[in-house]
Write a protein that binds this DNA or RNA. Sequence first.
DNA 1: CCTCCTCGTGGAATCGATTACACGGAGGAT
DNA 2: ATCCTCCGTGTAATCGATTCCACGAGGAGG
Lengths: 352, 352
Amino acid sequence: MASIKDVAARAGVSVATVSRVLNGHPSVSTDARARVLGAVETLGYRPNAVARSLRTDQTRTLGLVISDVMNPYFTELARSVEEEARALGYSVIIGNADERPDLQDHHVRTLLDRRIDGLLVSPTDGGSPLMVDAVRAGTPMVFVDRWIKGLDVPVVRSDGRAAVRALVAHLHGLGHRRLAIIAGPAATTTGRERVTAFQEALAEYGLPLPAEYVGQGDFQAASGRRATERFLDLAEPPEVVFAADNLMALGALDAVRARGLRVPEDLALAAFDDIPWFVHTDPPVTAVAQPTGELGRAAVRALVDRIGGGPGESVTLPARLVVRRSCGEPAPPPAPAPTPTASPSPVRRSTP
Amino acid sequence: MASIKDVAARAGVSVATVSRVLNGHPSVSTDARARVLGAVETLGYRPNAVARSLRTDQTRTLGLVISDVMNPYFTELARSVEEEARALGYSVIIGNADERPDLQDHHVRTLLDRRIDGLLVSPTDGGSPLMVDAVRAGTPMVFVDRWIKGLDVPVVRSDGRAAVRALVAHLHGLGHRRLAIIAGPAATTTGRERVTAFQEALAEYGLPLPAEYVGQGDFQAASGRRATERFLDLAEPPEVVFAADNLMALGALDAVRARGLRVPEDLALAAFDDIPWFVHTDPPVTAVAQPTGELGRAAVRALVDRIGGGPGESVTLPARLVVRRSCGEPAPPPAPAPTPTASPSPVRRSTP
DNA sequence: CCTCCTCGTGGAATCGATTACACGGAGGAT
DNA sequence: ATCCTCCGTGTAATCGATTCCACGAGGAGG
């Protein structure tokens, strides 16, 4: 592989001049520039990013550590992050933590070793010492979706409270009174917040949330299934199950089907996180939709701002309710337009 | 951030000794080793991977360029690739080409600039000059799923012919005679192969595949929708549509639903690539399942072998048919076991 | 005509590691 | 007692870029 020396030799100039041409420095004669460019062309020279990074102490790379790539929500997040980063001249290295703190640490460590310029994290747990140290050591970091308390790190996330309130209103309007939730891990902010939001919304209608109506899940399909089975075994099972993420909703669907029951007739179902597949399930699933793409882009912008020495502002965007058939709403009439029915429920604009 | 010099100073040894301790060289006294390890600990030192890569000319990083991260098949592939790579001591940088040759080139170029040790590609098109040059220049490369003709690069993929034959047998047994296919882009091997396999299987039953029963898609949902609409507009529409990937199957489902028709009563549906969601769609979709995880792992092993100077053997694994309800098969009775019904159709072992 | 700037250029230091080579001392063989 | 081998260690070159500094040439201004 040709190096800058080869280019310099072929162009009859010094490596300094080659570097200047490549970096657009003004102090280069037209003649020298042309010769260098010619040599670059004929040699097919490409600068070695490793050497460049060592010297400049920047890699123009961002790290993204997410909890589960197989979760469509995070897949979409990763995609929007990469797009925005590319637009700003950065590459992204994705680390998949699979909801495992040890794997999360592995990826954070590897990313740090590679001297990425900044780190985007959706923490799996309450915060490992490693991550805390990295923040203290001054690694530019931004949390996305989930976050860790007590760290001075910008957070980019969505506020689902209004949408959850709209969901409860929708359910209440359909006559449902016994509502249950499958919670996420208590170690994650999203795991706790969604339960709180649900509980608060229920309170507005004078509805209780008994302990046996709170299932414990881990954001994976299997746990949603187990929790739902437990609900169905109750002396007085709930009429509705609200799953705190899309995979657990899938597990719930499994559980209902395995017993030969039907959604929504025997048990209604709603989910946090909307994904394209929910349009095509049997029945289509009512969900709280996050502005995933926006979140990813805002997170990258905040991180790049931090890297540049800025404050890196936190951003909170509102989620919205998407009503489909899984809670008992009559199906929309078969229309030429196949797009999912957006709910007419109130949608509040964010204030960052 | 502490460097090797700081460690050397604190331990009272030279940088060479520190390096030797870190790399497990035998020629270090127990005393020196202890002091170095102590200094590493107190300073929280971590070797700079950038500097190390520059010197050793290896990054212990693999590049993976896939056609579409939002496609669950590729997501799963990426995940298994990362797992196997991690087990072998490598990191993976994923590039998402979004089925766009220019984006694919962008990622290949970036990856090459970063001096990744090897490249795993599922080519979007017939092969850009960039990729051809990289191969000629000696970049260790392995194709996975799709490949490019005429290059001496190992290919890890699955052979769907037996499964497609089993599918056609299944359809024929259900009485279907007018079978259509939504093909992938002709520029991809998988786009062409799946049509050929389908056509050959039809021929075995003396069934034709008229030109108007071959829809042209691009592996994205929208194209599946358009192709299906065209089929439905035909004077004599097909009884079955076979989509060459899962996203186009989703589009087909959309199209059928948008007309107020039903699957499988009005139009049966089958797909190439099985994904977890097909169990939960309305109706559950019959699909040809690739051993995705195996493919990812085999691809990594082949690539690492190449990197080590080995030949990097090609691998072909058989796909299998998973029968569900979208073609008219009666639903399996609601049983406690929720796992998808595996077909009893013949499965051939591969010969690499 | 001399001085001073500006401009284009090259030499060399530098980033943080790895590693070839040299060297001094200890221990074994003769 | 002498020589040869290891062994542990340090010095310094090296990877491929960027960039500070110095230097010579040429033009402008006095």
